[in-house]
Design a protein around this nucleic acid. Structure first.
Lengths: 354, 354
DNA sequence: TTGAAAGCGTTACCAA
DNA sequence: TTGGTAACGCTTTCAA
């Protein structure tokens, strides 16, 4: 008789009383177990009359099931965790929007964790998240080339799966977990082909850190594509900068300061960087599109609101976020890695050249 | 002796074993209670040697405290909940970034709930969130003018507070809860003054639904300001549209189709709408800035990357998100409503007119 | 400082 | 179908 003794409820931190299932059961005049069954969606083993009374009592008392308690008893929560580098970055917030929707469809809530792009923090985050016992952890944007952290992350995720959770990665295909993957390299090649077809002859590439898998694959694809399509891409015209808007800005600035030397287009490995680059060009007195073609990757929403509109390799970001969650929640059958299609979208920032 | 029986741990859904505090205690050779105290940050009442052994054992076994269980026992979680309309909207994702940071500083995790702008869903969300027993719920972007839902929301938040939680609103100052408030009306007036000073004489306003408090206050401020500053703002030149980028686009389009009739600037009640409006103007063959001044509210990051750069009333969005969480977590002393300062930022989208 | 054990609010099993 | 109750993994008195 250690449990749920009748009598006044314990006061909360600010003096409030908590309504528990016990109160509901008493109010409805049924047993504790019956009340639980009536409230829980899954079990239909309860008399209609009793159920109605329980539901009515719950409504009257404004009862809300206590999720943590439910989680402890049932051994699993109703939450999915998403790890991103930065919520305010359009790339990640689009992924988050999709993940949220899919979680919602499954009746789960979404917990967001933000790493700030710090791989160490990312590992720490996953570790903490493990304690939350979410149904699944989706990791977007880790730096998988960075070996020690890469392994530490894999270990944390492995432990998470060992405890019954599900881990899924987005766009980082070389860890032994189900992954929503983008054909980044191939996309880069297709982009150069499109640019070559529009008359571009000499490229500069603005890329993120080499440790960032997405950045590296895209940059490599661009280099390969340039070679294949007869476009000149000098080694010194591949500029590395932080994988952010400001990184793109700085990279473009240094490009201009150094002298363009015949470059007729600059491709950034993300739209966010490309947008920064466009602003830098403009601040340097150059007109993006007219003086220099500009292109990016992702097709973030603002790509059509910058001027000129940005040519890009469109990735279905929202859909990717949703698919990651669905992949995590679905059964293990089928392929573990889903590759989503990308599409080159030509806009005004890369007009046809004479 | 019903509790934590020794022996093999229960298998998880996929067959994994869970490491519990019991295992750690046994591994360290101390009692269950001592292990708990050693792991829990707050209690220093444990022998250093024992503590070290516990921590070592925890590390060795890869133990992670079970948050839900902790929450059940302790009566409160380590999470803060944030309700927004749309994660992918820069306004909300900036708020989220700030809220995340503040939650992080307090050692709490952030759970995001997305209402999609649907007030009914928003109430439902808060209700569900109550079940999660977060330390605090921060609601951004509700439509408080919509009375039935407004009251329902207030009731849910009241119940949440009754159970010991903390509720804080962002930019919706007319519910009886602590609020991070923006001087929206006053900001609107200051913007018209600035525009008048730059030679603008006839305005159009693109606004969101009347039910949206933020939109209404800003629009009202613009109307008042126009009157005070001798700017013409005809009733028919106030266009209502969805509070989104596409809403702004449509509104501007209809404005152009209808004929500008002497309007020399269009002000949208948010940067997101303003950006949409700029694109619409451009698609209609007009040059924002040159043919027509454009201004917005918020100063979202992309305001400086559109062309021309957007004049706006800057709100410290990230800081607001952070302050909301801090307000929720702090003690009840001091003022319940904090008003944050805004600042008119003139950029190229509103050049001086002859 | 430590250990035993009583909760916390659920779910789920078992017998009725 | 129902009620009783063990169990979930933890925190926190209460004695020792």
């Amino acid at each position: 008789m250690y449990q749920n003794p009748p009598g006044p409820r314990r006061a909360g931190p600010t003096g409030g009383r908590r309504v528990t299932l016990h109160d509901v059961a008493r109010e409805a005049g049924v047993s504790y177990a019956t009340a639980s069954r009536a409230i829980h969606p899954g079990s239909r083993k309860v008399n209609e009359g009793a159920r109605d009374r329980v539901l009515a009592a719950a409504g009257k008392l404004n009862y809300t099931p206590n999720f943590p308690a439910r989680a402890v008893a049932h051994g699993s929560t109703m939450a999915v965790a998403l790890v991103v580098s930065d919520v305010a970055d359009p790339y990640f917030s689009s992924l988050a929007a999709g993940a949220r929707r899919a979680a919602d469809d499954a009746g789960l809530s979404l917990t967001m964790a933000v790493s700030g792009g710090d791989p160490e923090r990312e590992v720490e985050l996953v570790r903490k998240l493990r304690g939350q016992r979410p149904r699944a952890i989706v990791v977007a944007g880790s730096r998988l080339t960075d070996c020690p952290h890469r392994d530490a992350l894999a270990e944390e995720l492995r432990l998470f799966e060992g405890a019954g959770g599900r881990a899924v990665l987005i766009s980082q295909p070389d860890l032994p977990f189900p992954t929503i993957s983008l054909a980044n390299g191939e996309s880069g090649q297709r982009l150069t082909t499109a640019l070559a077809g529009r008359g571009y002859r000499r490229l500069a590439v603005i890329r993120g850190p080499d440790k960032l898998r997405t950045s590296r694959d895209r940059a490599d694809g661009l280099v390969r594509g340039a070679a294949a399509d007869g476009i000149v891409l000098a080694k010194r015209d591949v500029i590395e900068a932080p994988f952010t808007r400001d990184g793109g800005y700085q990279a473009a600035l240094s490009l201009v300061e150094r002298g363009l030397g015949g470059i007729d287009a600059v491709v950034a490995v993300s739209d966010v960087m490309a947008v920064g680059a466009m602003s830098a060009l403009r601040d340097s007195g150059l007109a993006p599109g007219r003086d220099l073609g500009v292109a990016g990757f992702d097709d973030i929403p603002m790509a059509v609101d910058v001027m000129p509109m940005l040519t890009t390799v469109a990735a279905p970001l929202v859909e990717m976020g949703a698919r990651a969650v669905r992949l995590a929640l679905g059964d293990r059958a089928g392929s573990q890695t889903e590759t989503v299609a990308t599409e080159v979208v030509i806009r005004d920032s890369t007009p046809r050249r004479p």
